[in-house]
Design a protein around this nucleic acid. Structure first.
Lengths: 125, 125
DNA sequence: CGGCATCCTTGAGGATACTG
DNA sequence: CAGTATCCTCAAGGATGCCG
C-alpha cells in the first residue's frame, strides 16, 4: 500500500473528483455496487434525484469508465447500468472517506455549534 | 481499521463532503498540513483563488473544526491559520482518494476518449 | 421504459472597490 | 494585512412536456 507523498491538487484531479464525488454520484455508485440496475430502479433508489440529473450523472460516470450502460432492445427498451471493474476500485477510497465522516460527525457538529455560538455572540452584543 | 458496511449516503454526510472537498478546500488543507499560514501566504500558495472565495473556504473549514483562525493583534493585524487535530485526521482519507485518482487517471482518460469517440461516431454518421 | 428538449430559478463564485 | 461590500455572470440543476 503506497501513499501519496506529494498531494498537490492539480486541475485534472480536481475535475475528476468533481465528476465522481458530485451530488448524486455516490448514491448511484452505492446502488450499482450492490446490483445492476435499470434507469427507473435507480430513480426509485434515489428518490430525490430528477430524471435529468440522474441521466447527467449516469452519463458522466459512464464517460469516466466507472459504470457501463447496456441497452437491451426489447419492446419497450430496457437499459441496464452496472458498475465496471474500475468502478469497483473506487469503493475503497469512498469507504474510507465515509468512515471518516461517520466517525467525526459528532466532533464536527460540536465545532459548528461552537463556531455559530461565538459568531452570534459577536454580532448580537 | 474498520470499514463501513453500509455506505448509504445521507444528507448530513453529503453536505459535509460538499463543505470539505469543495473546489478550494483540498488545496488549502494541503498547504496548512505543511505549516501554519497567514491569509496572503495562502493566496500566494493557491494563486487562482480569489480573496472572496478564499475567505469563504477558510470560514467553512473553521466552522467545521478542521482549521483554526488566530488573530495576532499587531499593527497591522496578522491572522494565522492552522490545521487542527481533527483536520489532520482528514488527511488520510483524502490521501487515499488522491492515490486512487493518480493511479487510475490513465484508465479514466482512456475511458473518456473511448466514450467521446463512440459519441462522435453516432452523431456524425 | 428511458430518455431528450426547453424554460427558468438559484446560488456559487469572479471582478472590483473600499476599510479597520 | 486581512478582510467586507456590491455587483454581476454563468452554469448546475429543478420543473415540465414530448417522444421512439
Amino acid at each position: 500500500m503506497d501513499t501519496v507523498g506529494e498531494l498537490r491538487i492539480e486541475a485534472p484531479h480536481r475535475e475528476l473528483l468533481d465528476q465522481i464525488l458530485d451530488k448524486w454520484s455516490l448514491s448511484v455508485l452505492n446502488e450499482l455496487c450492490e446490483r445492476p440496475c435499470r434507469f427507473n430502479e435507480l430513480r426509485r433508489a434515489v428518490p430525490q434525484v430528477t430524471q435529468k440529473s440522474l441521466t447527467a450523472t449516469l452519463r458522466r460516470l459512464e464517460r469516466n469508465g466507472v459504470i457501463e450502460r447496456e441497452v437491451v432492445s426489447t419492446r419497450p427498451v430496457a437499459v441496464r447500468y452496472q458498475i465496471t471493474p474500475l468502478g469497483k476500485t473506487l469503493r475503497h477510497p469512498v469507504d474510507v472517506l465515509l468512515a471518516w465522516t461517520s466517525q467525526n460527525m459528532p466532533a464536527i457538529e460540536r465545532a459548528r455549534a461552537g463556531f455559530d455560538a461565538r459568531e452570534a455572540g459577536e454580532t448580537g452584543v
